[in-house]
Computed example of a mutant assay.
Amino acid sequence: MIRRYSFAKLLPGLLPVAGTLILAGCQNDSVPGLQSGADYFPLEVGRYRIYAVADTLWANYQRTPSSYQFRETITDQINDATGQPGYRIVRARRVLPTDAWRDDSVMFVAATDHALLLTRNNRRTVELVFPVRKDRVWNMNAFNSLDTVAAENRYYQNVGETFQSQFGGKTYSYNQTLTTALTEDNRNGQNNAVYRSTYDQVYAQGVGPVYRARRRYIYCADQDVGTSICGRSNTRIYRGQARVEVLIEQGKL
């Protein structure tokens, strides 16, 4: 079954945070083979991806939308602070397609035999685990302090499926994709009548990330919890952020 996501109908948001990266080491310097699933995030110097971004911030029930573009470019292959090899990714931002790109932040990606690790804003996360297998779970925050070491908060929701996204009247289709999402237990633990948090990423084989959506909503102020005005409703978000990114261009410099 083809899963379709209309960019225009999705809630935008989650303002980006620019940061300077402190590189962290990975545990294994070998590069996994394509059969493991590493080709869902190709690492090659000069490769770039451009995303259309829909962004919304809520404050005191007021909604402020914005839109812009991100470009992520693999600029060079380098060693991190521990001497382990990886790739530097520079993210740039512009509001209009006619604007000049302005560097926004830097990331570092390393692929081991078992996982793909991303360091951004001084925090390292486990983005993918190898080999790829539907319903496989892992701890995205195994290398940072956000969760306990034993937590299982991320899983492969779909593997090997066709995916379509839309932007500006154009449809972008991919034959082989996988989707990572919060585990059901993690969703249940974080989502209730007052709070909602979701984070989904779609990767296309031979391309990389093609769709990303992160939403964090608080539906009412602390003093209103338990009253009739406090309840889950996308039209009544007290405070929150949401951001949706759709890949619209890729290539090699």
Rank of each mutant, 00 (worst) to 15 (best):
I2A: 05
S6D: 15
S6T: 06
K9G: 12
K9T: 13
G13T: 04
L14P: 05
A18S: 09
G19L: 02
C26W: 04
Q27W: 15
V31E: 14
Q35A: 13
S36Y: 07
D39M: 11
A54D: 15
T64S: 10
T64G: 01
S66T: 14
S67N: 13
Q69D: 06
F70P: 05
R71N: 01
R71G: 00
E72Q: 10
T73L: 11
I78C: 11
I78A: 09
I78G: 05
I78V: 13
A81H: 07
G83R: 01
G86L: 00
I89V: 14
V90Y: 03
A92C: 02
V95T: 15
R102I: 15
D103I: 13
V106R: 07
M107V: 03
A110N: 04
A110G: 03
L116D: 06
L117D: 04
L118D: 08
R120E: 15
F130E: 00
P131K: 08
R133T: 13
K134W: 07
V137Q: 15
M140W: 00
N141F: 09
L146W: 10
L146G: 07
L146F: 14
L146T: 09
T148M: 10
N153G: 03
R154G: 06
Y156K: 06
F163W: 09
Q166I: 11
G168E: 10
Y174P: 01
T180C: 08
N186V: 07
G189Y: 04
G189F: 08
Q190G: 05
Q190A: 12
N192Q: 03
Y195W: 09
Y195R: 08
Q201R: 00
V202D: 01
Q205P: 00
G208F: 02
P209F: 01
P209M: 13
Y211K: 08
R212S: 03
R214D: 13
R215E: 05
I218Q: 10
Y219P: 00
A221E: 14
T227L: 09
T235V: 02
R236L: 10
I237R: 02
Q241C: 12
V246M: 13
Q250Y: 11
K252E: 00
L253T: 14
